[in-house]
Each structure stands twice: as C-alpha cells, then as structure tokens.
Nucleic acid binder design. Structure first.
Lengths: 203, 203
DNA sequence: CGCGAATGTTTACGATGCAAACATGGCGAT
DNA sequence: ATCGCCATGTTTGCATCGTAAACATTCGCG
C-alpha cells in the first residue's frame, strides 16, 4: 500500500483521480460530521471527502464497516482521555477523575459515543469489544490500586457500569429535568462517590 | 398481498376504509416488529397494520413520534417488570431483584430498550423523561427502605446508573468476551452486589 | 512501453421518510 | 332521510440512502 516516493499531499495540486489516502480522509470526514452532531451517511462522508458516493466501498465493505472504524477511533480517544485524567488527578482521586472524564467525553461527543457503544456489532465487532476492554482496563488498573481491599472483577464491572450508565443517562438527557447540567453541577461526581463510598468531597 | 392481518377485536368484516383504531394498531405493529428484532420503519409498520404508507401520519406527526409512543409503552413495561420483581423478592433482596429484572428486560427486548433510552428525544420527549423517572422511582423507593443509612439522591442516581449501564453493556455485547451470558451466570447480580456492598449471595 | 490491479466514477435499483392532492365514508345539522 | 363537513386513508411524487454492476483512470511493475 505504502511506498517510499510520496507525492502525498501538496497543497495546490488539484484533486487527482487517485485521492492518495482516501481511507484516512473518509475517517476524518466521518469524524467531522459526527463532531457537527449529524449521523454520517455513507454518501455524506463521500461528499465531504470530495469523492463519488461509491468510492468508500473501495476501502470499507459497507457503511457499517466505516462506522465501526470510526467507533474504534472514538474508543481509542476515550482511552486516551481516561489516561490523561488519571495522570493529572490528585492522589486517591484518580478513579473519580476518570469517571468524570468518561462522562465528559460522552457529553463532548454524544453522537460518536452512541456509535462507539451502540449497535456497532458489524464487521470489526471483535475489535470494538477488545478496545472497550482496553478502556475498562484503564479504569480497572487504577481501581486495583486505589481500592485494593474491595477490588474484585465483579466490583470492577460494577464501577464501569456505573460510569458508563451515567454517561448514557446524561447524553440522552434522561437527567435533564433533575439537573440540566449534571456534569457541571457535580452531580455526576457525587453519584460516583456515593457508589464508591468515598464521600470526601474536598471541594 | 393482502391478508387478514390480525385484527384483535372484531369479527369477520373486511378491512374497512376506516380502520377503527389505527393508532393502537400501529403501536402494536411496531411492537411486533421490534419483538422480531427489526428496527421498525414507518412503512413496515404501516404494512404490518395493513394500511398505506402514509396512513400513520394521520395519527403521528412523523416517524419519531410513533417511535416515541412505542418507547413510552416500553418504559411502562419496564416499570411493571420492576414492580413485579420487587413484589416477588425475598426480604432484603428486592433491590437486587429489581436490578436483575431491569437487565433481563433489556436482554429480552434489546431493540425496544435501545429505542426507550436512545435518541428518543423527539416529540414526546418530556413524556419519556417523566416515564424514565417513574422507573427510577420504583427503584428509589425500595432503595430508601433497604438501605436507609446510605440513601441519598446521589446514591439513588448511582444505583440507577449502575443497573442501566449494566443493561447497556450486556445488550450491546460488550461483555460477551468476558462472559457469554452475564445474566445467567450471575455476573450481573454479583456486580450489583459488589457495588452495593452486600455480598450475601445466599444462592 | 505495456498491461494488470488498484482505485474512482457512473448508472441504476429498491427502500425509506415525507409533502401534496385526492378519495371515502361516518355523522351531525337540516 | 338527505346533505355536507371533515377525520381518516390512499395515491403520487420527490429527495435521500445503501449498494450492486459496469465502466474509466491511473499506479507501478514487468
């Protein structure tokens, strides 16, 4: 696929027949549409990438395959966000920080998030599952250190569920009438603390 | 092909021009499609109800309105399931029983469940939110009795999130590689117990 | 230089959601 | 009983979507 001599991307070069790296461009286009809040149709993605509606099929089996690739990237992004939050957290507060980051990521990219954890069963299914496990593991690792006494696989699953459920409830607006801004108001954080049984709220 | 689609109440009259109670028939048709695991298109619902593709618009503003009505009914069904589980539970085990019932409901009606708590924002949005609160309240009420010491609004939200997140993870297959049958294996129950800190497993 | 394979394009088909115009017939006012 | 209103259904039409099939273009290797 890739070769040494790269006439890869020069600015004033008109769109050649061969796009150079459509595969990545399609991914970016889909991500961009997602970021704008719209669910990306295959045709819209192609349009945005400046190619014909059928072009994507040279790189992805079907719409679902493209979306799955996007979802994978989104999951990786979530993992990165969790790791960053974990690293930046005060001692003993890393789990809470990860939880908040998780929900914030969902709020910042609601459509993407739905794609990531919704019916993304298609082609790359296994890839998605594995990536999701990676995400869980980031949380799990920190959990094992901050709460070694209570820690069990079941407890880890419970924690993940709590955080994931919270994210779902928030982005679907199910908490809107209870609290218009569950993240900003600290409700999310308090709910996680309540479940973990660590009420130190230290402003 | 026109067949005598299941008319619930009437006897042998031919499909009259006026359907009698299309509104309800459409709901049932959508529910039936959902039960068969397919996402109901407006046209498919109309087909199943034995009317023309445009007929539903006399009763629902658009596809989303129909789906929202279906979602509402699904949420009511969940509430009923929770109440039943609560009533049948052994003393002190009602919260766990509700949690398991919640996840089981999701597993039994995955497409419906996604509809209920997915982007069901449209028309009846408020109705959906309120109904969801009703569901939460069933859990919340029992929670206040079984765990009066830890009980706070934040704790209640946390519990709901845990259960809801568990349901999401299970129906999307995110736990499939960890455990192919999280409900049957008891993993769901154990995760909830771990979060609640009540490890009595009393087979 | 030439040719095969990779990559894009065009055309076409069936499905979908919905707008607009038309048809039917239940039912209250006369 | 009759008539006419209008709620309820139907037909037609259009834009969009996913994707199959056939065609066009160019890359890279012999």
């Amino acid at each position: 696929m890739r070769q040494g001599t790269d006439r890869a991307v020069s600015e004033l070069e008109k769109p050649a027949y061969h796009h150079g790296d459509l595969r990545a461009a399609l991914l970016d286009a889909a991500l961009a549409l997602l970021a704008e809040g719209q669910e990306p149709s295959l045709r819209a993605v192609a349009r945005r990438a400046g190619v014909s509606p059928m072009a994507p099929y040279r790189h992805y089996a079907d719409r679902e395959a493209l979306l799955a690739a996007v979802a994978l990237r989104g999951i990786e992004g979530l993992k990165v966000a969790l790791e960053a939050a974990d690293a930046a957290a005060a001692p003993g507060e890393a789990v809470i920080a990860q939880a908040v980051a998780y929900v914030r990521y969902a709020c910042d990219h609601p459509v993407l998030f739905r794609l990531m954890f919704g019916p993304a069963r298609p082609t790359v299914e296994h890839g998605i599952c594995a990536a999701a496990q990676d995400v869980k593991d980031v949380l799990l690792t920190r959990l094992a250190r901050e709460a070694p006494d209570r820690f069990t696989p079941d407890f880890a699953l419970g924690c993940w569920s709590t955080i994931h459920g919270l994210a779902q409830l928030v982005i679907e607006g199910l908490l809107a009438e209870t609290d218009p801004d569950p993240l900003g108001s600290g409700m999310v954080e308090r709910a996680v603390r309540a479940m973990l049984g660590c009420p130190e709220s230290r402003v």
